[in-house]
């Protein structure tokens, strides 16, 4: 099932399956290694729907602020 990365619960594992829009924003996310097929894990969320932190790839940790551009679609895996 396809869901937005911003809607994943803390601790969830998922695989990136695509981007909702093609712009410089999503281009940058891919340049940071969030390419299609990359496994990610939601580590934590800042209070009040603030940024969420994910880990992925070899040893990357990144916090992203959820907004209309954060259209990263993922498939949750166990």
């Amino acid at each position: 099932m396809m869901i937005n990365i911003a809607d994943l619960p803390v601790g969830a594992l998922a695989v990136i399956i695509g981007f909702g829009i093609a712009n410089e924003f999503t281009e940058r996310l891919q340049e940071l290694g969030l390419t299609v097929g990359t496994k990610i894990k939601i580590i934590r969320r800042a209070p009040f729907k603030g940024p969420f932190e994910i880990s992925y790839g070899h040893s990357s940790r990144l916090a992203v602020r959820p907004n209309e551009n954060t259209a990263i679609y993922v498939r949750q895996v166990e």
């Binding site: 924003f25 940058r28 996310l29 932190e53 916090a63 992203v64």
Partner: peptide, 9 residues
């Protein structure tokens, strides 16, 4: 902004 808001830890 062209850049997404990202923080690396």
């Amino acid at each position: 902004s062209k850049l997404p808001f990202l923080i690396e830890f």
